[in-house]
Amino acid sequence: MYAPEFQYYRAASVAEAAELLSKNPDAKILAGGHSLIPVLKLRLAAPSALIDIGRIEVLRGIECSSGTIRIGALTTHAELAASAELRARAQALAEAAGMIGDPAVRNRGTIGGNVAHADPASDLPQVLSCLGAEFLITGPQGERRLGASEFFEGLMSTALGEDEILTAIELPEAGAGEGSAYAKFAHPASRYAVIGAAAKVAANNGTCTAASVVLGGLCPAPVRAEAVERALVGRSLTDEAIGSASRATAESLDDDEVLGDVYASAGYRKAVAPVWVRRAVTAAASRSG
């Protein structure tokens, strides 16, 4: 399959990419290409130009300092999955990155491209929402940062303006007594998430002091399972309590929003979602204090 014709520009810096973007209003940013190239091949988009940011080295890498993890937009899923720092300080992110696609996909796909594409069957949007990530954006008006609930707007739709570039993602390191995990019901052929549950739990002597549970795969944008979070806080994190709290998952799922397809209907996804929530919370609890 061939993409429609486009002009190709390779940017050497974020400033150059931003300038090219302002001169080519319907251009798209190219990083690893693992979301964009399939979209072009299927002719779901026909931008006049691609601006390749793939060689801007300052956009690559993971840095931890004073409790904050900063991840450059070009960092690949393979790098996320292999990061000892993430394994220790943002377990759910490293875990989810290692479940994306397959090894060759993880070698090329980037965190920035993944979240800018905002596919509801993706993994990282729900994980980054769960972990309280912020999205750093550069545009003609300078820099701005958005929280996950502002960044992800809906089906393949984000708050990123057409003249803006996502440069990095920041998230807090796991604090004392905190653990996080990701549980995924992967489509057996595509490996996309039919359901992806991300959980972060803080515990003190086995009692839950804070919980964050976010679901993907089910709805156009990540959904916070607030009823589950409320049911966990203040409880002892036993299997029974986690199972009981997980059953509240459906309260956060709007029937009109739940997606279905030929593989898994909306009703089926809604029915099995609590199982994946329970698995994610159980794993997060086992890593908490």
């Binding site: 190709y8 190219l30 290409g33 190239i37 793939g54 393979a78 090329r108």
Partner: peptide, 16 residues
């Protein structure tokens, strides 16, 4: 193998 690691060459532009 692209710079030593596996890659799916149907999802990579030659210019990349």
């Amino acid at each position: 193998l692209l710079d030593g690691v596996s890659a799916k060459s149907c999802t990579c532009l030659a210019v990349q």
